[in-house]
Simulated assay, not measured.
Amino acid sequence: MSNQHFVEHTIAPIDTYVEQVDIQGQYIQLAAPVHLSGQLDATGLLEQSSRKPQTELEPSILQIGVDEAGRGPLLGSVTVAAAILPQHWSGLIEHQPLSGTPLSILTDSKQLSEKKRDLLYPLVQQYALGYIVADIPAAVIDQINILQATMLGMRLCTEVLLEAVIRHFAAETIVIDDTVAHPRIQVLFDGNRCPELNHTMLDKVGIKKTAIDCQAWVKGDARHTSIAAASVLAKVSRDKTMYLLDTEHPEYGIAKHKGYPTRAHTEAIEMHGVLPTHRRSFAPVRKVVENKLKG
Score class of each variant (00 low, 15 high):
254 I>P: 08
80 V>G: 06
60 S>Q: 10
39 Q>M: 06
179 T>I: 07
227 I>A: 01
138 A>S: 14
123 L>M: 11
144 I>C: 04
161 L>R: 02
242 M>Q: 11
272 H>K: 06
252 Y>W: 01
194 C>E: 14
7 V>F: 08
231 S>P: 04
234 A>T: 00
170 A>P: 09
201 M>F: 12
132 I>H: 04
29 Q>L: 10
173 T>F: 09
121 Y>W: 15
74 L>R: 03
17 Y>D: 13
246 D>M: 07
152 L>V: 06
71 R>V: 12
161 L>P: 01
237 S>R: 03
36 L>I: 15
138 A>Q: 00
103 L>W: 02
235 K>T: 09
166 I>D: 06
101 T>E: 04
58 E>K: 13
55 T>R: 11
239 D>Q: 04
109 S>P: 07
82 A>D: 01
43 T>L: 07
40 L>T: 10
37 S>W: 10
42 A>S: 14
117 R>F: 07
196 E>T: 11
21 V>Q: 08
4 Q>E: 15
210 T>L: 13
75 L>G: 04
77 S>L: 02
184 R>S: 15
99 S>G: 07
182 H>W: 12
145 N>W: 00
74 L>I: 08
14 I>C: 01
237 S>Q: 04
209 K>P: 05
134 A>D: 05
201 M>A: 15
284 P>V: 03
287 K>Q: 13
154 M>K: 05
280 R>G: 11
271 M>H: 12
162 L>E: 08
160 V>T: 13
